[in-house]
Amino acid sequence: MSRVLFAFAMLLAFGVMKLPAEHALSLQHRSASGGQSDDIANLDLREKIGQLGFVAALSGFRAMLADFLFIQAHAAWERTEWGRVLFLFRQVTTLQPHVPLFWDMAAWHMAWNASAAAMNDPSQPRLALRVKAQREYFALGKDFLERGVKNNPDKPQLHEALARLYRDKYNDHARASEYFAKASALPGAASYDKRFSAYELSYCEGREREAYECLHGLYAKSEKERLPTLIKRLKFLEEKLNVPPEQRIPDKER
């Protein structure tokens, strides 16, 4: 028995030795994963997922729990229970803030699906209230994406999703252009991000020159970029900026 006690004393001594190294290691882990894994122990999470889920989340079941909730959210979407979809996606993204897919899905459900459902809600005869509900869902989608971007600043797909949201739901071409541009600067970005950024810029009043430079740059860069839309926007800008004829792009490309 005394040997067992001695063994525990040994472990305790080892514990003192390992403590600084272990502590440093978990700080490094945290910074590697974007400084967000401490979220996991905070009260906010505990409130959202309950005691049992909290213990599960801390016991190596975090990813599985998130998937489980995600599947539930999917089922809720099929039943068009929008409040529940929102509730579940908040949990999912809190559990797994580093999976861009979850942010993307959450925002898409809010800004595209729930908002459309709210606009076509037969139980609400007043248009103004339907429009208001729709706007609220846009805002929820935007909120998801903004937090997603904050947690995953190096993921182009979330920037891109945010850009689409500004473009399609807010008609905010300047912001859309800005986020497409941000996405295009990140590793793994789609090749069209840069072009989309320029397209959006071409709609912004007062920034035609800037947009023209961008589009012309792309046009000059490679044959591949000379898509019908690009040429159309470029010609539109040439017209608007009164570009001298000799500098304009040839017509036959049309």
């Binding site: 525990f8 472990l11 305790l12 514990g15 003192v16 403590l19 272990e22 290691l25 978990s26 490094q28 882990h29 590697a32 994963s33 974007g34 894994s37 801390l58 190596g60 975090r62 990813a63 797994q96 580093h98 999976v99 861009p100 993921k155």
Partner: peptide, 25 residues
């Protein structure tokens, strides 16, 4: 002091999420 830090070995969550874990870590 007595218990091991098992959370330190759950790197796989981060890896699946696409976080690049430095080799040193």
């Amino acid at each position: 002091l007595i218990f091991p830090d098992l959370q330190a070995f759950n790197l796989v969550d981060e890896i699946v999420a696409g976080v690049a874990i430095p080799l040193v870590l």
